[in-house]
Nucleic acid binder design. Structure first.
Lengths: 340, 340
DNA sequence: CTGTTAGCGCTTTCAG
DNA sequence: CTGAAAGCGCTAACAG
C-alpha cells in the first residue's frame, strides 16, 4: 500500500540513461538533441512507473511552483464576486497552474499573514481580489513577486483589472432610451456622497458618470433621484414603498440588483406589474437577478472575464504595468418593456 | 529592489552559529538544549534579516507542505455550499495551513488532473467537497495521501463529514408541531423517486425519513404532498400556483429554500400573507432565505461547521476511519406563525 | 551529443 | 551540548 515515491532516478535507471538525460527529455527542453530512441525509452519508463515529478524539488531548483495565490477580502467565503474565482480558476488551469486561496476578511493582520504564507510557498504570482472595486490599502511587500490587483487598485501595484463602469452606465441608459422612454425615469440608489467626493469609490463614480453622460447625450433627465448609501434589498424596498405613495414612475434605473430586488417587492405590493406598468434596469447581474420574475434586465459585472484576464496578465512576464478595463455585459431579461 | 532571498545560513552566520543550530532553534524542537543566549541570538538575527523559511526546501526534506487541497465539484465557482469553504479556510488558517483550490465541474478528467496536481505539489491532505451530498465516484488514487470526503461519501475514502439530515427533518416538523399546527400541512417537493430508491441520494432520503418519522411520532399527517424532481424557484412557483387554485394550506413544509422562494411568489400573487395565512418552513438556509420578506424560517445545512470539521479530521493523523454527522441548524425567522 | 557533478535551502543524523 | 556533513529530488552547468 505505502508505495514508495517514483523518482526521476528510477525512470532514468529503467530507461538505461542518466537522470539528466531523463530530465531534459521530460521537461522537453530543445537545447540538446538526444536520440529519438532515448526519448521513447524515457517516456515509456515514466509511463510504466507512473512517474510524477516532485514539484518541491523542482521549485527548489527553478524557483517556479506553477502555483498562484488568490488573496481576496471576502470572495472565497461569500457569494459575492464569485465569477472572479471562476475566471481565475479556469484560466490558471488552462495554463497548468493551480490556485492557492487566502482570505483576509479585509483585515490588515490577515493580509500580512496571507502574503507571507503565499511568499513562503514560493508562489509564482499573487492576485489581490476585492468584492467591490476600489482603491485599496495593502501592507508593503518586500518581495518582488509578480502581483495584480483584481477589481481594485493600489499604488504599490502597477497592474490592475477593473470593470468598465463608465461604459456600463451608458449601456443601462441606452437600454431605456432604446425602449423609447423619455420621461418618468427614476434613479434608485444613486449615492450623493460619492458624487460629492466624500467617498473614494472610483468605480461607482464612473458608473454614475456614464449614466449622467448618456442621459444628457440622449436628451433625457430623471424625474426623481432616490439617494441611498445602503444598497441592500431592504433599503430598495423602503425607498420605493415610500416613493410609490405619491408617485408613479414609468421606469427604474437601480444602482444594483439588490436594490432592484427590494423595489420589485414594493412594486408588487402596490399592484404594479413589471414591465407592463414599470420597467426596471439595474447593475451587477447578481445571481438573484435570474430568480426574480420577470427576470431582471441588468448590466452585468464581467467578473469571469476579469478573473481570466488577471491570470493572463500575471503570467505574461513582459507586462510590467497596465490597467485593463473589461467591458460590462448587458443581460437582457424580461424587466424592460416599451414606453407607451 | 531585487532583494536576494535571506536563507537560514545567513541567519546562522549573523548569529555566529551553525545552520543546524539555527534550524533547531527556529523549528522549536525541544530535543537538544541549546543555550538560552543562542536562542536569543538566532531569533534576533532572524528578525533583523526578516528571515522566512523556504517551504519548498523544507518540503523536500520533511515531506510536509502545510498545504491542503480542496477539490470540489462546483463549490469554488458557484454560490452553493460556500460555507464549506468558509469553514475549511478558517480552520486551516488556524492550524497554520493553506488551501489549494481545485474545481472539477463534476468531470472525471478534471478530477484526475486535480488529484495529480495536488499530489505533485505534495499537499498534506485532500478534501473532496461536493455541493449536494451523495455517494460519489472518484478516480482511484495510487498515492497514500490523507483524504476526507466533505458532504459526500466514497468507498475508497473511510473518512466522511455529512450533515445530519435525519435530525434536520425532525426539527422542521417539530417547528410546525410546536406552533400547534395539526392539519392543513402540505409537503412541497418531496421526491417520490428518491423514496422509491430510484435515485441514490442518501442524505435527501434521510431528510425525508426524519420528516416522516417525526410526523408519525407527533401524530400528524400531510394533507397533500406535491412531488417534484426539480427544486428550483421556478418549480416551486408553478407547483404552488396550481395547487392554490383549489386548496388553501395552512402550512408549507418545503424541501429546500429555492422551492420556498417560488412558493412565496405564488402565495403573494394569490393574496395570501405569510405567516398570517400560511406558514412556511424549509431546508438549507440558502442566502436568499434572509432576503425574503418575511424572512424564511429554515433548517440550515451546517456547512461552515462541516468545513471546519473536515480539516480538523484531516489534520488529526490518529483518525483513520470515521463518519461524522454534523447537526443541522434551525434558523428562526418570520415565516412561521401560530395555528389558529 | 551524452553523462557526471554541483548545488537549490533545509533538516537530521552522527561525530567531536 | 554543538557543528560538520549527508542528502531530500531535481535541473543546469560543465566535462568527456
Amino acid at each position: 500500500m505505502s508505495k514508495k515515491r517514483v523518482t526521476l532516478a528510477d525512470v532514468a535507471r529503467l530507461a538505461g540513461l542518466s537522470t539528466s538525460a531523463a530530465s531534459m527529455i521530460l521537461t522537453g527542453r530543445p537545447d540538446t538533441r538526444l536520440s529519438p530512441e532515448a526519448h521513447a525509452k524515457v517516456h515509456e519508463a515514466a509511463a510504466t512507473l507512473g512517474y510524477r515529478p516532485n514539484m518541491a524539488a523542482r521549485a527548489l531548483r527553478t524557483d517556479k511552483t506553477r502555483t498562484l495565490a488568490f488573496i481576496s477580502d471576502h470572495i472565497a467565503t461569500t457569494r459575492y464576486g464569485n465569477g472572479l474565482i471562476r475566471g481565475a480558476l479556469a484560466a490558471s488551469e488552462e495554463a497548468g497552474h493551480v490556485l492557492m486561496m487566502l482570505e483576509t476578511y479585509g483585515d490588515p493582520a490577515h493580509e500580512t499573514r496571507a502574503i507571507d504564507a503565499a511568499i513562503d510557498r514560493q508562489v509564482d504570482g499573487i492576485i489581490f481580489a476585492f468584492v467591490r472595486s476600489r482603491e485599496v490599502f495593502l501592507p508593503s511587500i518586500t518581495s518582488n513577486v509578480r502581483m495584480v490587483m483584481l477589481n481594485g487598485t493600489n499604488r504599490q501595484c502597477p497592474i490592475a483589472i477593473l470593470p468598465d463602469e463608465y461604459q456600463g452606465g451608458c449601456e443601462a441608459v441606452s437600454l431605456l432610451a432604446d425602449a423609447n422612454f423619455t420621461d418618468g425615469i427614476v434613479l434608485l440608489g444613486h449615492n450623493a456622497e460619492v458624487e460629492e467626493g466624500l467617498f473614494r469609490s472610483g468605480t461607482i463614480l464612473s458608473r454614475l458618470n456614464g449614466i449622467r453622460s448618456e442621459m444628457v447625450s440622449r436628451g433625457l433627465g430623471f424625474v426623481d433621484e432616490l439617494s441611498s448609501w445602503n444598497w441592500e434589498p431592504e433599503n430598495g424596498y423602503k425607498l420605493m414603498k415610500k416613493y410609490l405613495k405619491n408617485s408613479r414612475p414609468k421606469a427604474l434605473l437601480c444602482m444594483n440588483d439588490r436594490l432592484a430586488f427590494g423595489a420589485y417587492q414594493a412594486l408588487s405590493e402596490a399592484g404594479l406589474k413589471i414591465p407592463e406598468d414599470v420597467s426596471v434596469v439595474s447593475f451587477d447581474n447578481d445571481e438573484i437577478a435570474a430568480y426574480l420574475r420577470p427576470g431582471l434586465t441588468t448590466i452585468g459585472l464581467p467578473h469571469e472575464a476579469m478573473g481570466r484576464e488577471a491570470v493572463r496578465v500575471l503570467l505574461d512576464e513582459k507586462i510590467v504595468e497596465s490597467e485593463t478595463l473589461v467591458a460590462m455585459e448587458p443581460m437582457i431579461r424580461g424587466s424592460v418593456g416599451g414606453a407607451d
